[in-house]
């Protein structure tokens, strides 16, 4: 019942943080909602199972704790995104290289787009790239 890793957390770490919430929003940022839905949909399509997902998510949470994340719940969806990037790579659904190229393409598109205009990705952003 007890997770050995979690009970090894230092006392002061455990003592911090409040356990109450006052019915805050389900998602604090739009990207959290998108990341939640992407995982749900990929799981529904059978690209990975809930068991595989919770193992990867649990590992990423643990890794973040090791890197000094106080893990008070507010960084949860950051771990979710990291786990999502990892599982799509592990399952050869999308490579880390493809995701990185795509991030750079979106970033470049945002930089060259004047304020107020819609940001669009060039159609050839993935040219020469094996997506998986």
């Amino acid at each position: 019942m007890t997770s050995a890793n979690l009970t090894e957390l230092p006392e002061e770490e455990i003592a911090r943080g409040t356990l109450r919430d006052e019915g805050g929003p389900i998602f604090w940022e739009p990207w959290e909602a998108q990341a939640f839905a992407i995982k749900k949909l990929l799981c529904q399509k059978g690209l990975f199972s809930e068991v595989e997902w919770s193992a990867v998510l649990g590992e990423e949470i643990r890794r973040a704790q090791d890197a000094q994340d106080p893990d008070k719940g507010d960084t949860y969806y950051q771990h979710w995104v990291t786990a999502l990037e990892r599982i799509v790579g592990d399952k050869t659904i999308a490579t880390a290289d493809a995701l990185k190229r795509c991030r750079m393409a979106w970033d470049a598109a945002a930089r060259r787009t004047p304020h107020g205009k819609p940001i669009e990705l060039p159609k050839d952003w993935a040219s020469g790239l094996a997506l998986s």
Binding site: E29, P30, L41, L47, V88, A94, L99, C102, D107, L131
Partner: peptide, 24 residues
């Protein structure tokens, strides 16, 4: 984070694995 999620969505969309309307 927004950029990372947008990249995930774009790549998965190009592979035909997700549909933005279903995500919504």
């Amino acid at each position: 984070m927004t950029l990372r999620v947008r990249a995930l969505e774009t790549v998965l969309l190009e592979k035909g694995l997700i549909d933005p309307a279903v995500l919504d």
